[in-house]
Design a protein around this nucleic acid. Structure first.
Length: 592
RNA sequence: GGUGCGGUAGUUCAGUUUGGUUAGAAUACAUGCCUGUCACGCAUGGGGUCACGGGUCCGAGCCCCGUCCGCACCGCCA
């Protein structure tokens, strides 16, 4: 037996016990003939001690040790002379009777401590060492608990976890597929699933009316701090449900996770907001509800006063930034430059300051009387000492730019506190999105999303503008400005589904080739159904109060989609290529 | 595909403004001293392809061009 206890469990009540521990050397402190070793494992740190009265062999071995050596330590649990209240085992230490080096270790390239000296790049290369650190260990522990509690809740509500295949048919709608060549079927490829969407719908046809799966999904798109090429969803689907049933069920899941993982009670129903309102007031389809600073349209209030910039704009909107009337000229200039960056997309910035002495100062004083400016202030719900920021232009673009600015000002004012959680359902998304480049509609969610029943007339009309107004029976779960979940009531009527393919510009043959098996299945009695999928990595990151999902994935990819530890992807040899009937058009690289 | 920031000791960074002798600090590492440390302390020591390639110059870590790599973001992500 390598150990009798872990390095995190011994307490004062264990004093006098003969124990054996195993773990890694966290730190050695030599005080002459009195020597300490902090021994670390997953569960904590226990101090080992030896002095002149201890066995000579122990001291000899102790002199050979370095950081991260793997040890087995035998000894007696003893009360410490001077205790350490910082760690749970701080009242005791192990008086060593025997010390064994199970394995030596080279000095790690960075310190294995909560505040490490290692940079991201280096830690990624030695991920297995980074994972020894508490912050990452705690992140993975949080993830484990989240998954466990999600399973408990769903199991308690009669959901069955069913696995769906990873080698599936490529359906090049939406994100790019990762593809896998098939050796036995020359020239043909599987795709890795972007989500198990079609399979879960088939499970509904099969009568498994409550399905879930914590499942890996793959999308071959560029990465971000919150986007990985392979990521995990809590994927769920239910039969015989309407939107309200789905929202209730998964609001319950989120509340269960809040309670069991973060010990936060959410008794009131989550806020709900139609997509149009989200865009109008927050300039985003995923509003951050932790602070107000709402966007207000002031087009009618500012036009016709001779200011040509506003007069020629389709839309003029504003936000009132609290307590920022004292912004200096320099700060306003800096902000103006900031909003003009492509990432924000505004053409310019007009300000109105509501000074504390009651006066009003703006960059458009020439065109507007103080009375008119006061009117605007009222519309945007500005108070004394507020700074009103005004933008104009195309309606959607300006709303989004105001939304981006709103988030930035929220950041600057410290209004986006990661310990506060404001959940929200956004619903009534447009069903379709027109793409100018390809001159066709795309499904905003996916092509199996049902239109809202009251929009069916428009859905079947050939009017492009009418179609653009059709709302989807879909919903997103948004937490603190991050889209964490999304779903919809699905189409279960093959007539409606065929109309969708028609709108998306598929010929019957194309629809048959891509989705034939699903359409065929629906002929055999598809129940009304709908569901939702949570982005599990993002969910974990939000619960952990972090902006990046990388810490919540044991072995993530870097910005370029590379595994820098294993150095993947990599070239394969010609034999392998030939066997798979594939050739590469990429420039040939010398193998290292 | 694009924008921004960055690449200097094992590691994290300073040095680049205004090119100029031997490139510094902290930490880590090594050695020695130390019986109550727990970020131990003290002393000593070793440690550098200034990312790579080219250019300008009497002279480049520093200026210019290109490449590679990392991070954040835009596009993209049904």
């Amino acid at each position: 037996m390598y150990r009798t206890h872990t390095c995190g469990e011994l307490r004062l009540s264990d004093a006098g016990k003969q124990v054996t521990l195993a773990g890694w050397v966290q730190r050695i402190r030599k005080m002459g003939s009195l020597n300490f070793v902090d021994l670390r494992d997953r569960y904590g740190i226990t101090q080992l001690v030896t002095d002149d009265n201890g066995p000579r062999e122990v001291t000899d071995i102790l002199n050979q040790l370095g950081r991260e050596y793997v040890l087995q330590a035998k000894g007696i649990v003893a009360e410490r002379q001077s205790k350490n209240s910082k760690i749970p085992t701080g009242d005791i230490e192990i008086k060593l009777s025997k010390l064994t080096i199970l394995n030596p270790a080279v000095t790690p390239p960075f310190t294995i401590e909560d505040q490490t000296d290692g940079g991201e790049d280096l830690r990624a290369k030695y991920r297995y060492l980074d994972l020894r650190r508490n912050p990452l260990k705690n992140a993975l522990m949080l993830r484990h608990t989240m998954a466990l509690e999600a399973r408990k809740y769903l199991d308690g509500n009669n959901f069955m976890e069913i696995e769906t295949p990873c080698l599936i048919k490529s359906t090049p709608e939406g994100a790019r597929d990762f593809v896998v060549p098939s050796r036995m079927n020359p020239g043909q490829f599987y795709a890795l699933p972007q989500s198990p969407q079609q399979f879960k719908q088939l499970l509904m046809v099969a009568g498994y009316d409550r399905y879930f799966q914590i499942v890996r999904c793959f999308r071959d798109e560029d990465l971000r701090a919150d986007r990985q090429p392979e990521f995990t969803q809590i994927d769920c689907e239910m039969s015989f449900v309407e939107r309200e049933d789905v929202l209730q069920m998964f609001e319950g899941l989120v509340k269960h996770l809040f309670k069991t993982v973060l010990h936060k009670d959410f008794t009131a129903p989550f806020l709900r907001m139609p997509y149009d309102e989200a865009l109008a007031h927050y300039g985003s389809d995923k509003p951050d509800m932790r602070f107000e600073m709402l966007i207000h349209e002031i087009t009618k209030n500012v036009q016709g006063k001779g200011f040509s910039v506003f007069d020629s704009a389709k839309y003029v909107g504003a936000i009132a930034v609290p307590g920022c009337a004292d912004y200096s000229r320099k700060q306003i200039d800096e902000l103006t430059e900031w909003v003009k960056r492509p990432q924000v997309g505004a053409k310019g910035l007009i300000y109105i300051k509501l000074n504390t002495d009651g006066s009003i100062k703006s960059s458009v004083d020439k065109f507007y009387s103080p009375e008119e400016l006061k009117n605007i202030a009222e519309v945007v719900e500005a108070k004394e000492n507020d700074l009103i920021l005004v933008m104009c232009g195309d309606k959607h673009k300006t709303q989004v730019a105001l939304g981006t600015t709103r988030l930035e000002m929220g950041n600057r004012l410290g209004l986006r506190d990661n310990s506060i959680y404001k959940p929200l359902w956004v619903y009534d998304f447009p069903l379709l999105e027109w793409d100018d480049e390809t001159q066709r509609f795309y499904a905003m969610h996916h092509p199996f999303t049902a239109p809202k029943p009251e929009d069916m007339d428009k859905y079947y009309s050939d009017d492009k503008y009418g179609l653009a107004e059709v709302k989807a029976n879909s919903y997103d779960f948004v937490l603190n400005g991050t889209e964490v979940g999304g779903g919809s009531i699905r189409i279960h009527d093959s007539k409606v589904q065929h109309r969708m393919f028609e709108i998306l510009g598929f010929t019957k043959e194309q629809a048959e080739y891509r989705f034939g098996f699903l359409m065929n299945a629906f002929k055999f009695g598809a129940p009304p159904h709908g569901g939702l999928a949570f982005g599990f990595d993002r969910f974990c990151a939000l619960f952990g109060g972090q902006d990046t999902i990388r810490d919540y994935i044991a072995f993530p990819k870097n910005n370029m989609g590379r595994d820098v530890m294993a150095d993947a992807p990599s070239y394969i040899d010609d034999v392998q290529m030939k066997e798979l009937y594939i050739t590469s058009t990429a420039p040939k690289q010398e193998e290292k």
